[in-house]
Write a protein that binds this DNA or RNA. Sequence first.
DNA 1: GCTTTGTGCCAC
DNA 2: AAACGTGGCACAAAGC
Length: 582
Amino acid sequence: MHVVLTREPGGTVRLHDGTQRAVPAADLPALVADAEGGVHGGAAVPRWTWDDTNRWYPGLLRAGVRVERSHDLRLVHRILRHSTATAGSELAAAGVGAWDAMTPTPAGAAPPVGARRVPQGAALFDLAAPERSAPAPLGAGAVDPVAELRRQEDAVRGSSAPGRLRLLAAGESAGALVAAEMHHAGLPWRADVHDAILTDALGPRPPEGQRPARLEELARQIRTALDAPPSLNPDSHPDLLKAMQYAGVGTRSLRKWELEKLDHPVVAPLLEYKNLYRLLTANGWHWLDEWVTDGRFRTEYVVGGVVTGRWASTGGGALQLPKGVRRAVVADPGWCLVVADVAQLEPRVLAGMAGDEAMATAGRAGDLYAGIVASGAVPTRELAKVGMLGAMYGGTTGASAQVLPRLGREYPRAIALVEEAARTGERGGVVTTWLGRSSPAPGSAWDEAQAGAFADDAGADAAARARSATRSWGRFTRNFVVQGTAAEWALCWLASIRRRLWALGVADGARPGLAPAPFADRPHLAFFLHDEVVVHAPRELADVVAAEVRAAAEEAGRLLFGDFPVDFPLTVAAVDSYADAK
DNA sequence: GCTTTGTGCCAC
DNA sequence: AAACGTGGCACAAAGC
């Protein structure tokens, strides 16, 4: 049952649940906790329905309250608004409105810079604070959540795929809960370990504005190798390129792969310099100061932040944590990290979408690429891998393109699906994921490129531009269906993991970790990266958590593809440090 | 002075 | 344009 929550003047929250109660905002956590506890008599837990999860849930979490189900109107609106499955709905037909203009609210009460952090005791639901994300209503009732829910339900009911869209809406909303919970709990991070990694690689932390000792030494070696003056700054690309040219090192860029091809004494120190410079600037002491507080790294997950439906993140580069610093991700004392990732998620999802039994069979034994080799389609695992990646990304050169015909013969349905998605994109059309998220239509640049090719004075370059834009959009839509459906599988996986972990209950006799309530004594999700999760769990629960994470993957597969026999095997490891997982 | 663009590398 | 998709982010250079 949906219970829509709205804020009203005077610091009250109204529950649109038949009672139409209005309660002081400060009473909401207790009220929600009470409703969540009502499962005993078999009473259904409410589906808390709100404009934006991040405007409601972080406050509940800070009060130690976790909810089981929700409906995020902003996120679901965005999906339904563009889905081909709801094209005929009132919601899709309406003009651009306030729900379209809404931008996500940051989950943290705290802005990225620690100094500006809101104190812990800040009001949970501070109605005096100006709305950070909701734009001014365009007209009376423009942002009425009750009316919006009705429009969304109508759109789904009248759609060509109500079941799938309901699953997508539930998954997206559950994802928003997970994202808020992971922000709340944080990823365990040992600043001392991180500092040791940095000191080991770079030398001790230098005073502000100075190069670490190791970088200074490498800069000296670079100058020596180039016979350049001490004024040469390796951080300046133009100066460095000039110096290299002068020294007779023929290169036009400073990219790693380009430098690796050269044979010159400057190459080794320069590559090491770039490597360490990257560590320093991306995940150095400054990063540590800014992003790690009280033993936790907290990023802002942006649910549905990528067009395909993948999550994005903002703050701390959470989705690009380099392998080298993962050693600093360490479980609390007495706890462990259960790290799980899906093997070859995207080709498996493709097999499921296409109903390609041969490809599903190839994945049955575990390693899908090995299965492709076993089928005789290609001779080596490496070829199977680059071939499949090329098929899903739109590769047109090299080994990838070479093996594509053989993959097409062995797995006609899977390959046909991505080829068809590419052709649709090349025509300027829209493609849709398995559960109903549709790709954007090509933008004005695409239109102009196409129009340019037909202009009276169109030259060869205009034609080439149009062709390039055409193929590029085809690669986008080709990838969209696979990446987007993989993201949907991952949402279902996350939602299932989340529910299962909570159902495990409070760890019996486990040492409490450092995570805040409501997760202080419970296993909880701590990190998510497209096809990989990290669960922070009391050590004695490692095995049962691993089993639940595997069961969740099976469940996700069934939710998307029913009885179709495609497997989603996981690699699971219970470790102290994230770096030990693989 | 500021903002925008280009470069390059990290993750999946 | 590393002729293969999605992103974030830091820095220096270029633009205003």
